[in-house]
Design a protein around this nucleic acid. Structure first.
Lengths: 209, 209
DNA sequence: CTAACGTTTGTCCAACCGGTCAAAAATTTG
DNA sequence: CAAATTTTTGACCGGTTGGACAAACGTTAG
């Protein structure tokens, strides 16, 4: 299953990193088809043929980027575990996801771009690895519900809603900042969001008597 | 402010509609730069030069599409009003937004694409019209909170969370369907989502008693 | 009927884009 | 140092794309 990584010189490792960093920037803001090799090469400070010496095809860059992304992207969900208090566990999952939206917005947008276009390159992974993981965690959550630790509801849609609300702050960042305006759209917006989401997911909107 | 619509023949109106419908399909699945005039022309059943007779530039199609989109897109929020019970009012706003995600997924994806790329074409509208509308509705919601009708929290982030959770079912549809699998990913997913979201926004996850 | 006007199409072009190639430059190895 | 190997670059190519244009075709009004 695992393809052995080709032997690489120090220069090759460094330059490949440089290219991937530049490509993340370019791909995440222009999409795959909207980005050109020239743009990536310029962002990486090298000529186009030189870039193509390290990655034979444009798609190879995107593929490498996507593979790396998926591992780190699902890490928070993998950590969701049966040990500890369920509400606390969910709360910290939400917090971790929001931190990822704050610290890795480009990765989030790259992923969003891929899904928006119908996930042509990662469909098998969604139906395989991702579905398995989500089903597994949904079972854990169902256990919490049966034990009366959290209100009974649909675990899958619960996970979707956590993804949606947190990633929104990365994918729709420009809209969030535009609406909040210069005053409230500064760095504090993530703390405001964290406070709000915690309250929403724990208590909802119904007033306490 | 308002540019007078040019006089148009019956054929021009019909053909322009045809093109816009085709362009919505193509743009929403491939993005602006990923779509070609040829693709749109073929989807509209006409030749490329013929299409260019009705819309001088590719950008003109996109712009027209975007202008129409924004009106219908914000309609549900405009309807959010002070009359009636606050919780009911919010519930039906969520339901309406979810129905739009179900019935107009292409419009949702077109909008998502634009925002993801940094909203280069509609930034003024976000900072102007949209911000004004949201601020206005946030004030309404704040009133409900002061009156003790709903729990006090941040109205802006509340609106963001409604946008995020509902549009997720249009923008990330392939992911939702892949994770739910063939059994639960059918037409029933929107009703499941509606039930879940209602419970989440009203009661949250904390178990009763 | 026919002149005027609206619509459609084939052809063409310049810019762009992904990718190749051979040769030059730099680096490593013996 | 010199040979071998790796890295970098300029020039180039074929295919695609947005758009221009003029000629052909269709429609309508006098």
């Amino acid at each position: 299953m695992e393809i052995p990584a080709p032997r690489r010189t120090r220069i090759q490792q460094e330059k490949r990193e440089l290219i991937l960093e530049a490509a993340l920037e370019v791909f995440s803001t222009n999409g795959f088809r909207g980005s050109t090799i020239d743009q990536i090469a310029e962002a990486a400070g090298m000529s186009k043929p030189n870039l193509l010496y390290y990655f034979r095809r444009k798609e190879d860059i995107h593929e490498t980027l996507m593979q790396r992304l998926l591992d780190t992207w699902l890490a928070p969900l993998r950590e969701l575990d049966d040990i500890g208090d369920p509400l606390t566990e969910l709360r910290s999952y939400i917090r971790r996801k929001l931190e990822m939206a704050r610290d890795f917005p480009r990765e989030s947008r790259l992923f969003a771009n891929e899904i928006l276009q119908g996930a042509p390159r990662i469909m098998p992974m969604l139906e395989g690895e991702l579905k398995t993981l989500v089903d597994e965690k949904a079972a854990v959550i169902k256990g919490w519900m049966r034990a009366g630790k959290i209100a009974p509801t649909d675990p899958w849609h619960l996970i979707f809603s956590i993804w949606a609300t947190t990633q929104h702050y990365a994918d729709f960042d420009v809209q969030v900042r535009a609406v909040l305006g210069p005053d409230r759209g500064g760095d504090g917006r993530f703390e405001d969001a964290a406070r709000f989401l915690e309250q929403l997911f724990i208590d909802g909107l119904k007033p306490k008597t």
